[in-house]
């Protein structure tokens, strides 16, 4: 499976992704799907500065991703797909381009209106609605910040009111 990880994480490219998930994966690329970041070259340069030379940083709008991801899934390159929020992942899922890839909820941090569900996952009422929507679009969704952590099923997550 060339797309190894499909993750919602508001920190996007960062230590857990690059080192925790990426170090043992033989990664060729990390793709960030984000309309705003896809328009901001200076921010893309900041993220690329944190990647090793062997890992390509790709930054795509949702529209670009909808065209590119089905092709990536067919070739031999190994990569991660990241979005900073659940809504963007829903946009990918509703076009059914993620096939049977499991969606990983890796990090949504504290912000006004959000409540702690897991140490790395804080959800607002809107986040919960988006997760319900994501579940309807894509049945395989779990939370897990790093590979060694317990994988938490979405049902368990949505039943929990606080961590």
């Amino acid at each position: 499976m060339p797309i190894l990880l499909c993750r919602v994480d508001d920190r996007l490219i960062h230590g857990q992704v690059v080192v925790g998930w990426g170090a043992q994966s033989g990664l060729d690329y990390i793709a960030v799907v984000d309309d705003e970041l896809a328009q901001s070259e200076w921010e893309q340069d900041l993220y690329r500065a944190g990647l090793s030379e062997s890992v390509e940083g790709r930054f795509l709008s949702v529209a670009e991703a909808l065209e590119a991801i089905p092709n990536w899934a067919q070739n031999a390159e190994r990569g991660f797909i990241l979005t900073r929020d659940i809504a963007t992942m829903c946009q990918l899922a509703e076009h059914a381009i993620l096939a049977d890839i499991e969606i990983n909820l890796g990090g949504l941090h504290d912000a006004p209106g959000r409540h702690r569900v897991l140490p790395y996952l804080f959800l607002s009422a809107n986040d919960r609605r988006e997760l319900e929507r994501l579940r309807r679009l894509h049945p395989r969704v779990t939370a897990q910040d790093v590979p060694s952590a317990r994988k938490v099923k979405l049902d368990e997550l949505l039943e929990s009111r606080s961590g």
């Binding site: 996007l12 490219i13 960062h14 080192v19 900041l46 993220y47 944190g50």
Partner: peptide, 16 residues
């Protein structure tokens, strides 16, 4: 600490 970490990206954004 890590050049690829969230701390580094926040600091780089500030520096820019």
């Amino acid at each position: 600490d890590l050049p690829s970490g969230s701390c580094a990206f926040a600091a780089r954004r500030l520096r820019a």
